[in-house]
Design a protein around this nucleic acid. Sequence first.
DNA 1: GCAAACGGTGCCATTTATTGGCACCGAATG
DNA 2: CATTCGGTGCCAATAAATGGCACCGTTTGC
Lengths: 239, 239
Amino acid sequence: MNIRLRHDAIVRILRRGAIATVSGLADEIGASRRTVLRDISALRDQGFVIHSECGRGGGLQLDPRSAEITARLSVTEVFALIISVAAMRAARSLPFAALADVGLAKIERTLPPDKVRDLRRLLECLHVGQLSPKQDISDTGTIEPALLPAFETAFLQRLHLKFCYRDTKGVETHRTVEPQAMLILPPLWYLVAWDPERGDFRHFRMDRVSLPAVVGGPQFRRRHVPFEDDVCPFSDMAR
Amino acid sequence: MNIRLRHDAIVRILRRGAIATVSGLADEIGASRRTVLRDISALRDQGFVIHSECGRGGGLQLDPRSAEITARLSVTEVFALIISVAAMRAARSLPFAALADVGLAKIERTLPPDKVRDLRRLLECLHVGQLSPKQDISDTGTIEPALLPAFETAFLQRLHLKFCYRDTKGVETHRTVEPQAMLILPPLWYLVAWDPERGDFRHFRMDRVSLPAVVGGPQFRRRHVPFEDDVCPFSDMAR
DNA sequence: GCAAACGGTGCCATTTATTGGCACCGAATG
DNA sequence: CATTCGGTGCCAATAAATGGCACCGTTTGC
């Protein structure tokens, strides 16, 4: 078995969350204990946080944070990469925007073709700008990582997205919308969506979104989102 | 020489656009003719379109389109990737900072080990924050891409860096400093360096730096840069 | 026609990297 | 104290990469 495939296999097993012993991994993968230990060492070098416990009942365990992230890696890794490239573009201090595209090209080469398609599609939906300095961003919450998979699915398959939104006054409402774009004005993130009930575009701050769920049924159609690429006319949007 | 490094080297040479002979490549790279031929075959498998001509005056040539698309990582491009990850971290809206690390791990997997080391080392020097809204950034210039290679070398090899700096009043001075860190407060970039002449830290706006050159000689030592990770006390630094 | 300069392939000995087995250390557990 | 873990150092076995060689087909220029 190829070294790279083996590493992937180990990560996949560790992702299950249970404590795994080196010998167990070795058996399951079909390699020796020694090799697995070398692999673990290599994975740690690569940035995987793998905890280990000695003694009876001990073993290896992927750090929950690392596990959480890598669990979604297959689905969300594309998103993560997009975001880093997009953030890069957002830096705006040319010529670095151009370098971001180089980064993207490099990334694309490492992904299977179908993911490249996904990546490009998501990139189309992503708009990055800068918040005007006068914006008040003191009440920024955190964005739950758990939101992403649902959003990604909704964007890629053009399915309606249902979620709970807490507005400025703290009032919670349930929405079902057609996700059209993602607007990043660091440190704030917005979902720009078409609200069929109200027949208009609405923007939602991601840190106020919770419990997202993809709604099955017919795909919605892409609409012309009322802003162009870099320029964002939503200067009053933070409210 | 590592197989991956060799492939990169071959692509780099071919990207120059000229016709290259197998023997010429072999000499330049320091491998045998046979090995280069195997590499070419492997690169073709990887999707590189490499034309070949037999006979006198013949040789290998990278398809122009392929050359454009397959921009491989050069030194500066590593920097580009770092920046994208750092910019990502700068977004600060967790959990995306964590996702950036995933992106980084993904990128690292595709890089040869020595570049991973470089990448990490550079990442250590990179601090990203946000400019306080009250800063005046109206006079932002552009940062020349040509600056990067010199900076990268200086950072990696801990060599002194000489450059020309234009201060607020437009007065140009020549400096020779020990680069300690890179501070990014979008859209501004600063070099934080130890100035041996003045015996103190100085910060330089990258858009006011020109004609950088690495100075040979003994390596300088890393100093404790007076700011920690995310928090940047240089609130008055834009001046 | 012929020699030389090219790319390209098959083969095999040599060199280098990966792997597995082993002994052994230290920590935790009962 | 024995057992069960992770972890390291070492070395021989094994697998992969490499280089050298002979050789083929094509093109070019004499």
